[in-house]
Write a protein that binds this DNA or RNA. Structure first.
Lengths: 117, 117
DNA sequence: CTAAACCTTCACGTCGGCGTCAGAGTCAAG
DNA sequence: CTTGACTCTGACGCCGACGTGAAGGTTTAG
């Protein structure tokens, strides 16, 4: 299929699909005209990318971890121990971000309440 | 005092102080030479700005709410009801951001565990 | 054959709170 | 007077995942 159909089937914009290729996350074939040609497997590949992006990974990180991911019927499974380490670090970073936001929210509540400590 | 001293007394960079002025958050006097001259009150003003930035407000939002803030000995208190509304909205936005991050973290945990649903 | 879809490669714009030069003027102390 | 610390105004850089044209080829239905 060409880029338009992949975009429709994944709900991801054509621009994003070209961007993923630019970042090395997708490697579609090319027709003589230059048109990108994707296989059915790329639909799942795009899903994997989106899941990892939604997990807060950058495209560079995804590029590293993609070869270590097993797509077991829609369920992503890590196949390398160092990948697990990376994901754990990422999870911890997210945890820190959550803590910061909770602190921020508490500060806001203090201001809203306008009460003395 | 001039900008260097204010920077030292607040721990905020000179660049940031100039930026705050650019955004209308500070209005220091000027010497004929163009040097900015700040008063003692500006130390507290910068503290207010930092607290609000840390609360996730943009400089544009801070510009709106600053006139409504009473600085009661380091404790910020809202003086206008519409400001309270604004702060509540901001708090809710932060709550949503926290929820999203928690979802993200849960997704990551699912991948890390690599277990079937 | 023609026109509408569809596709291509640039390449700049976005958002925000600054960091970081560059080039030049100001001021206080010795 | 001179030196060196201090300050000024631009103005580009950053981070990241794309959005959004522009200008032009390709494919396909009718």
């Amino acid at each position: 299929m060409r880029i338009g159909e992949l975009a429709r089937r994944t709900g991801v914009s054509e621009r994003a699909l070209r961007y993923y290729e630019e970042q090395g996350l997708l490697r579609p074939e090319r027709r003589p005209s230059g048109y990108r040609v994707y296989g059915d497997a790329d639909v799942a590949a795009v899903r994997r990318i989106r899941v990892l992006l939604a997990a807060g990974l950058s495209t560079a990180q995804i590029l590293e971890v993609l070869p270590c991911i097993v797509d077991d019927d829609g369920l992503l499974t890590p196949a390398c121990p160092e990948l697990v380490d990376e994901l754990v670090k990422q999870r911890d970073r997210i945890g820190e971000a959550i803590s910061e936001l909770e602190t921020t929210r508490a500060n806001l509540n203090t201001i809203i309440a306008g009460q003395r400590s």
